[in-house]
Amino acid sequence: MPISLSPMMMRQIIMDHYENPQYKHAPIGDVSKYEQVHMDSANCIDDIIVYVLVKDNKVIDACFDGVACTISTASTDIMCGLMIGKTFPEAKYIVEQYNNMIHEKEYNPDVLDEAIVFMNTAKQAARIHCATIGWDALEEILEHHHHEEK
């Protein structure tokens, strides 16, 4: 994805993922096979569950459901799309790059695809939590697996 995306295009990407999220639904298959993390916040209305199906150190499926604002819906939706099919090390690397971007550190934009539309989040500090709520849930699941395998 070119880094020279115009604000207009970035806005459109966020709105598309907010209005027509592809991964905002409960797991279609057997829910019990999914890892799930419930995320909510005292500071805002967001209240979502992130579901991840893992097998052989790989993210097989990811989706989420609940109540969330534009930024958290779009960022979590984009995240799910990015993660499906990735190995754990790949997934962890992407999460790390995303967090670096959000916190205005050096990051590798090549692996973030559409998620780079959140590059300006730090300018609206109150929204950092919205842009990371789904990603934090995923990270928790990845960490959990990492420990189990040790």
Binding site: N43, C44, I45, C69, T70, I71, Q124, A126, R127, C130
Partner: peptide, 21 residues
């Protein structure tokens, strides 16, 4: 427009309001 999105937008204009419950 989701309430928090509206409040953030107003913040960008220097206007302090609150969103949520």
């Amino acid at each position: 427009v989701f309430a928090q999105d509206l409040a953030t937008y107003l913040n960008s204009k220097g206007i302090a309001v609150r969103s949520g419950q």
